[in-house]
Design a protein around this nucleic acid. Structure first.
Length: 301
DNA sequence: CAAAGTTCCTGCGAGC
DNA sequence: TGCTCGCAGGAACTTT
């Protein structure tokens, strides 16, 4: 369930594990995830040292010593498991083309969904597991990053100067529901289904509100939009602070499960009581663009 | 049946 | 009228 906070948690974990290490071997157990892997991806990665692990939106970007960037997106169900040198020695992984990895006891699913393995010069390994295979792996030259097709149309990062004025400009005359706009990565990046619901609840705004009604005729943001922008940042910040949330098929990069999920105010709480102070409403589930939205009709107008 | 994400397709209205 | 563009809504991918 990787939204921005979860991806940020993974980024921090991979940074710890990978930076300064050189990649000794890459084992690919299939030729694609959501898209085909780039030509010679394993060969290109092999022998390079990891310089940095960055994040843009929900994408992980790994800077390599020969000038390329390895891009990894977790999709819905992707995760990385870090394997210590001792465990690598004990389990003794087999090579490319073998359908399952030997790390199943660490990654689940008997190793059937361990699609990529990275082995490092200190004897450690990292395994990418993704049952639904909505994830992405790609490789490009660092100089090409600004025009990389997956990245070039992304909107602002929430914590890099994004504010209600910018938000109002981006909404313009868009009439679609504000929940849908929050999920649009051209509006702001990193917000997914859970935090969109949570931010709207915290703001007291109905998810079905037409986006353009949050912008004044003169193009300036309304008070409601100002509040929403603040609450988006606040809810993402809170989730980052506890190491990202988790649902049933996401594990933090070090195998530690997050626990912010227990603190959701509306997400997945249909028919539960609204937890807002003084509100006695009941949480409802509606469907927008084929996706569930949770809201309290009493305190979200 | 539903699921954390993203892309692509179709249909429609506006404008040239 | 015919074409293009952008927006809006929906389906699709896959496995548990």
């Amino acid at each position: 369930m990787p939204e921005l906070p979860e991806v940020e948690t993974v980024r921090a974990g991979l940074e710890q594990a990978w930076v300064g290490r050189s990649i000794e071997q890459v084992i690919l157990r299939r030729t694609d995830l959501r898209f085909p892997f780039p030509e010679r991806m394993a060969e290109t990665l092999t022998g390079q040292t990891v310089l940095a692990v960055r994040r843009r939106a929900k994408y992980l970007l790994v800077d390599l010593s020969e000038g390329q960037v390895f891009l990894s997106h977790l999709g819905m169900s992707g995760r990385y498991t870090l394997v210590t040198p001792a465990e690598v020695t004990r389990l003794n992984p087999s090579g490319d083309g073998v359908e399952r990895s030997v790390f199943g006891e660490l990654t689940g699913f008997d190793g059937r969904h361990d699609h990529m393995e990275f082995r490092f010069d200190d004897g450690s390994a990292s395994v990418y597991t993704d049952p639904r295979r909505f994830g992405i792996a790609d490789l490009f030259e660092r100089a090409e990053e600004p025009v990389q097709s997956l990245l070039e149309h992304l909107g602002p990062e929430p914590f890099a100067g994004w504010n209600s004025t910018i938000a109002a400009e981006r909404i313009g005359a868009k009439r679609s529901a504000i929940k849908i706009t929050l999920l649009d990565q051209r509006f702001v990046v990193g917000v997914g289904n859970i935090y969109a619901c949570e931010a709207l609840h915290r703001s007291g705004i109905s998810p079905t509100t037409p986006s353009n009604t949050l912008v004044r005729k003169n193009g300036k943001p309304t008070k409601k939009l100002e509040r929403l922008v603040e609450e988006v940042k606040a809810v993402l910040e809170a989730a980052i602070a506890v190491g990202g949330s988790t649902l049933n098929d996401f594990a933090a990069v070090d195998g530690t499960l997050g626990y912010f999920g227990h603190h959701f105010q509306v997400y997945d709480r249909e028919d539960g009581p609204c937890l807002k102070e003084g509100c006695n409403g009941t949480i409802e589930r509606i469907v927008q663009s084929n996706r569930s939205t949770f809201l309290c009709p009493r305190c979200q107008k």
